[in-house]
Amino acid sequence: MTTTAGLVADIAVLRGEFSLELQFALAPGATVAVLGPNGAGKSTLVDALAGLAPLHRGEVVLAGRTLERPAARVRLSPQERGLGVMFQGYCLFEHMSARDNVAYGLRARGVARARARAEAQAWLERLGVGEVGDLRPAALSGGQAQRVALARAMITRPALLLLDEPLAALDVSARAQARRLLAGWLAEAAAICVIVSHDVRDAVALADELLVIERGRLTARGTAAELRARPPTEYVAAVLGEV
């Protein structure tokens, strides 16, 4: 099942009393949604993949490159991993314009300011928010901020995109359209996409496959239809029953 071109994740993280332990592998270009109740360990999974929470055992291998393997004392920093991460609540840099936010990853890689800004502007236009380039994050609407954050994560064309609750900050009226647009952009990106969500509708709409985490363990994996047909836990049965 493992492909050297994809993602292999064998993760064990300890955070105080809480432990996250799960294994999964994803093929190149796969888009999966990680679904689970609050406190199940979804954000810890994002941190572990991004290098923000150290593994205590296991490994993470992306496209044949070992990002982390405690047994071999390998642990690449977040900087070295080159992933695209869209944080919950976006975490935009408040003192920079939207354009400079998007250009940040290129500037960190040594791209000249003018070129980085031009490319950032192009990304903003591609995501339909070309007009907000000069605005500070505080002046953006929820939908605009979401697209700026997405552009910032995608501009470096990462092999793995991690999106933590990408739609949670949007109000209901904007949500359906945003979901559709996001699905389209992710399909265009030649990246493995891992989308963390507590909302089953978002998860089902955005991803081909669902990974369900409960209390730090992987309890189910499959398409929505498969899981609905044979729900392995009460939680899976309950949430998929809603859709």
């Binding site: 991004a50 290098g51 923000l52 920093s77 977040p78 900087q79 991993r81 080159g82 992933l83 695209g84 991460v85 944080f87 609540g89 975490c91 840099f93 408040e94 003192h95 920079m96 940040y104 990853g105 960190a108 890689r109 910032r152 470096t156």
Partner: peptide, 28 residues
């Protein structure tokens, strides 16, 4: 909020660049 610095780290910014571009402006 350390998340902003973590965001900068995932974008490839060195510790020094993070301090210069994210931390110092925020605490100015």
């Amino acid at each position: 909020d350390p998340r902003r610095e973590q965001a900068a780290a995932t974008l490839g910014a060195s510790r020094l660049r993070i301090v210069g571009t994210v931390v110092l402006p925020a605490i100015r």
